[in-house]
Amino acid sequence: MANISQEKLLETIIRALDSKRAEDIQLIGIRDLTIVADYFVIANGTSNTQTKALADAVEFEMKQLGIEPIRVEGYQGATWIILDYGDIVVHVFYKETRSYYNLERLWSDGEQKDIEEYLSPAD
């Protein structure tokens, strides 16, 4: 994998989601809770089309950095798309599906991080 800082990867993912008007982008640090990943990035779209567009935007921007996901799941139904980048797992939900699974509650022991630092002041 390219030698790019985790901070830069998080910034790239969050800005990609924001650029496509993702709702309620959450960044949860889970490094101390699981070996699955260091961070979950959670966001949602308001339609299946937007949900796919959000995931596409993340994949495109990460590919620009030379980074491919380890695995991708959920494109068919587009209600919960997972992009696994190893230390960072991106969960892109359709709004109702996000409410149903409520990952934020499941991972409430994680560290809620402020995403504002990843978004440029111009946004």
Rank of each mutant, 00 (worst) to 15 (best):
4 I>D: 05
48 N>Y: 14
45 G>M: 03
66 G>N: 07
16 A>C: 03
45 G>K: 00
87 D>R: 12
103 L>W: 04
94 Y>C: 06
100 Y>S: 08
111 E>A: 00
114 D>C: 04
21 R>W: 09
56 D>W: 02
3 N>E: 09
9 L>D: 01
32 D>W: 04
118 Y>N: 01
106 L>P: 09
38 D>E: 13
109 D>G: 08
5 S>D: 02
60 F>A: 14
121 P>F: 04
72 V>D: 04
70 I>A: 11
53 A>N: 05
45 G>F: 02
60 F>I: 14
41 V>S: 01
109 D>S: 13
123 D>F: 11
89 V>F: 06
8 K>E: 10
91 H>S: 04
63 K>A: 15
15 R>G: 03
41 V>R: 00
53 A>L: 08
13 I>M: 00
76 Q>K: 15
49 T>N: 10
29 G>H: 04
7 E>N: 09
99 S>Y: 10
79 T>V: 13
106 L>G: 00
121 P>E: 11
54 L>D: 06
28 I>V: 12
32 D>T: 14
4 I>A: 01
108 S>E: 12
34 T>V: 13
120 S>Q: 00
37 A>G: 07
106 L>E: 13
85 Y>F: 14
116 E>K: 08
107 W>C: 03
47 S>P: 01
13 I>R: 02
120 S>I: 12
57 A>P: 08
58 V>A: 03
30 I>M: 11
52 K>P: 07
33 L>F: 12
108 S>L: 05
119 L>E: 00
76 Q>H: 13
19 S>Q: 12
116 E>A: 13
104 E>G: 01
66 G>F: 08
91 H>F: 00
93 F>Y: 12
117 E>D: 08
22 A>D: 00
71 R>A: 11
79 T>A: 10
46 T>R: 12
37 A>E: 05
52 K>I: 15
42 I>Q: 02
67 I>F: 13
87 D>V: 11
39 Y>E: 04
12 T>Q: 03
57 A>E: 14
81 I>A: 05
10 L>W: 00
100 Y>K: 10
46 T>F: 10
87 D>W: 07
9 L>F: 13
47 S>H: 06
92 V>A: 02
81 I>W: 02
64 Q>T: 01
36 V>E: 14
109 D>R: 14
71 R>H: 13
108 S>C: 01
108 S>M: 08
36 V>W: 10
66 G>A: 09
67 I>D: 06
25 I>Y: 04
67 I>C: 06
85 Y>M: 02
33 L>K: 10
104 E>H: 10
57 A>F: 09
117 E>P: 09
49 T>K: 15
43 A>T: 04
120 S>K: 07
123 D>A: 02
2 A>T: 13
25 I>R: 04
62 M>Q: 06
78 A>P: 08
118 Y>W: 00
66 G>S: 10
78 A>K: 02
53 A>E: 11
23 E>R: 14
115 I>C: 02
98 R>T: 10
112 Q>W: 08
98 R>D: 02
18 D>L: 00
12 T>W: 07
72 V>W: 10
